[in-house]
Write a protein that binds this DNA or RNA. Structure first.
Length: 426
RNA sequence: GUGGCUAUGACGAAAUUGGUAAACGUACUCGACUGUGACUCGAGUUUUUGCGGGUUCAAGUCCCGUUAGCCACCCCA
């Protein structure tokens, strides 16, 4: 039998409700922060990602789903969201001087990695970008939103790591200085790091290898190289976070896997997950627009949240809502009057209720079981006796109470019973 | 990409030293029950043990391969 492709996942009926719940909660806060949604294609020209993410990164080197289309163009399933957003902004000239654009996206991303818990080849992200603001206010705004989302979902224990890599202009200097510090130790670095030393020194600072770690431990952090201006910027971001009560840890060795970051970078992680504990990551990228061909500089900040990982956290904390059943199941006394009940079913649906009846035409016992299993609140019984007497019965499946009333009072009564419950649940 | 662990009905799982596969539990169907579910009791349905090969009189059990999942590394969401 054919199966889904490795690293992909079917979201089955029960789980899809949880995905919806997660998204709706997120959208409610994105709206309150006045972000607008942007939907870009899930594949782009390969070149877009190489230019934005960086040729030396792991993503570009070994994790991209790249293929040729029928005309021989090299296309790639997007491994992250920012590149496409920047492309779209430039293409459609969405950037205006002295204006801030706040965008978000929700959708699948693709990276060819070895799957494990919390890591799939197709995974989903919620991401935001704040474009056109070079002040620390944008960094703060983005992190505040991130925190609001975690709170909205009920995740209280989230760790934030933050660091700064300096402005785009000071980057060459920072790199030069890092190399100077590392050069006496270059023989003692691991093979990967000797390579990174040339291609991307920042990554050496992030190496997990013991020998490298001990060397780096003796060296000053990146922050110490920063210009006064850069440090002032970072301090302002931190002041803002302190003022808003956002707790974080300063991690001078934090480096991100994409080349375009400048200034502030950050990661959020959860202690509920295993080794894949990062649930969100982001930072500032003041240089990307120009690297993508923009005539003017467009300062920007953004982050992405891993939705599967959030769901995993929520699952392990038992914070996910249970699957909700129908409000009402309409029950008949046999095959024959089942069809006579369809107008009643439809009328209740028209009134806004979630209504089910037994499409299999089973006996009454089975219909009640259906009502019970699906978690329905009420059973509306309209069998042969009721139809003849122009009556209908309503049974409350939690209290087990049953009442009989005139057929034409049904809708009114159902509204009365269910509206009380609705107010509480919503 | 590297290393390790795992794979039995719809699901969770049992199966002495290789010797009749699925005990037990959940789910599902029907009945006791009166046109009435969830409780209780009774009856019943689903398998050639992921896939392919090998060793053996005999393989769920041992060996090789393969696929998938999990764990760690790499890296990240």
């Amino acid at each position: 039998m054919l199966q889904n492709v490795r690293g992909t996942e079917d979201v089955l009926p029960g789980a899809s409700q949880q995905w919806l719940w997660l998204e709706e909660k997120a959208r409610s806060w994105l709206k309150r922060f006045n972000f607008e949604e942007i939907r870009t294609p899930i594949f782009e020209l390969t070149e877009l990602f190489i230019r934005s993410i960086g040729e030396t990164t792991d993503i570009v080197n070994k994790e991209m789903y790249t293929f040729s289309d029928r005309k021989g163009r090299s296309l790639t399933l997007r491994p992250e969201g920012t590149a496409s957003v920047v492309r779209a902004c430039l293409q459609h000239k969405l950037i205006q001087p002295n204006q801030v654009l706040k965008l978000y996206y929700i959708g699948p991303m693709f990276r060819y990695e070895r799957p494990q818990a919390g890591r799939q080849r197709q995974f989903h992200q919620i991401g935001i970008e704040i474009l056109g603001c070079e002040r620390p206010a944008a960094d703060l705004e983005s992190i505040l939103l991130l925190k609001s989302l975690f709170q909205e979902w009920g995740i209280s224990r989230v760790g934030f790591r933050i660091n700064s890599t300096g402005s785009r202009g000071s980057r060459p200097l920072v790199q030069k200085r890092l190399r100077e510090w590392l050069s006496p130790h270059i023989q003692d670095l691991c093979a990967d790091c000797r390579n990174r030393y040339e291609k991307n020194v920042f990554r050496v600072y992030d190496c997990k290898e013991k020998s490298c770690k001990s060397i780096i431990g003796t060296l000053p952090g990146i922050l110490e190289i920063l210009s006064e201006e850069d440090r002032k910027y970072f301090d302002d971001v931190r002041k803002g976070l302190d003022q808003m009560g956002v707790e974080y840890e300063l991690d001078p060795h934090l480096v991100r896997g994409l080349d375009y970051y400048t200034h502030t970078i950050f990661e959020a992680y959860s202690d509920q997950l295993g080794s894949c504990d990062a649930i969100a990551g982001g930072g500032r990228y003041d240089g990307l627009f120009q690297e993508m061909g923009s005539a003017v500089q467009v300062p920007a900040v953004g982050w992405g949240i891993g939705m599967e990982r959030i769901l995993n956290v929520l699952q392990s904390l038992s914070l996910l809502p249970s699957v909700s059943g129908p409000d009402i199941v309409v029950i008949a006394s046999g095959d024959e009057n089942t069809s006579q009940n369809i107008p009643v079913v439809q009328e209740l649906r028209q009134a806004g209720f979630k209504v089910e009846y037994d499409l299999l035409g089973r006996n009454m016992k089975a219909q009640f079981r259906l009502a019970d299993r699906t978690g329905a609140r009420l059973a509306v019984i309209r069998g042969e006796n009721e139809i003849q007497g122009r009556k209908v019965k309503i049974k409350d499946l939690t209290s087990h109470e049953e009442i009989e009333l005139d057929e034409d009072k049904l809708l009114l009564k159902v509204k009365e019973i269910l509206s009380a419950a609705k107010k509480v649940s919503s």
